[in-house]
Nucleic acid binder design. Structure first.
Ligand SMILES: [Zn+2]
Ligand SMILES: [Zn+2]
Ligand SMILES: [Zn+2]
Ligand SMILES: [Zn+2]
Lengths: 147, 147
DNA sequence: AACTCCGATGTTATATCATTACACTAATTG
DNA sequence: CAATTAGTGTAATGATATAACATCGGAGTT
């Protein structure tokens, strides 16, 4: 199923950009950072992202409309359900999974005869560092997304 | 916190539109359905939605970029974490909550000292009816979203 | 009534996110 | 070689969401 051919130049550049960045980046923010490498159009980014999403090297955060490199020690091929905690202040992301949570979702699906294909879990809030440093709105370090 | 003043005309119209529809609707789909009532611009819809989202009468499904009326028997004011199961074939949505799941998220947050503000859970797949009727991709009844 | 405040409204323009369409290149394979 | 497949470059377009500004109307005061 997982195709795993080596990454192309565009795919590698997009992945490097995301890996080098602590925060999620929008597709257009990635584009801007890769103009020096010859990127000119959104599609070049979106197409690379499509592939990286398929292979699990990158995740899309629906609540931010942005993308992050997978930073989780787990193997994503195993299709484990992953949750993302996103700090609204510094924009950092934590990936974690919990087998009990997975079990409960499976139980619900079984009871309802629902065939699960994908599960999206995103938690927004304040990370430990930002709780101490600043306040729930006061930017400690704003952590600008985008350009 | 919850303001609960009576709904304005625009808010009521948007809510009625969503309630009358079995599927989630995009803001622009709502706009199209309300042109007969005098709606002309996206902002009229988005502003009404903002209020309805605040009061919990409507939910936004990030994975669909669409909105649904709250159909859950629960009281949303209680801030219970709700999960949405979305059929990719017929677009119908099921809302449910599970205290064990909530407990596990709380446990993670406590361990990480993360202050949770909102939790988004969306499960995509095939509902029981569509599993029997059709196939995992073959449209039994496509269930067109949007216009 | 006149004044003020505040939430809602109407309208135009703009920003942001994502895809369609088409022509082309490179590697693979029979 | 021809056929297939994935990837690429470019322009145009579509879909989703917000900014900015003027106005309106009710509630509470004076
Ligand atoms: Zn991951
Ligand atoms: Zn933080
Ligand atoms: Zn609800
Ligand atoms: Zn269905």
């Amino acid at each position: 199923m997982t195709d795993h051919r080596p990454l192309t130049r565009n795919q590698a550049l997009v992945l490097e950009t995301l890996t080098a960045c602590e925060e999620p980046l929008s597709a257009y923010a990635i584009l801007d950072r890769l103009r020096g490498e010859g990127f000119r159009a959104p599609l070049q980014v979106y197409r690379a992202l499509d592939k990286l999403l398929q292979t699990g090297l990158v995740h899309r955060l629906d609540s931010l409309k942005a993308f992050v490199a997978c930073a989780h020690p787990h193997e994503h091929g195993g299709e484990a359900t992953v949750a993302f905690a996103i700090c609204e202040n510094c924009a950092r992301v934590w990936e974690f999974s919990d087998s009990t949570i997975e079990d409960r979702f499976e139980a619900w699906a079984k009871a309802e005869n629902f065939l699960t294909r994908a599960t999206t879990i995103e938690i927004s809030g304040l990370c430990a560092a930002c709780r101490e440093a600043g306040a729930p709105g006061e930017p400690g370090q704003p952590g600008e997304r985008g350009a």
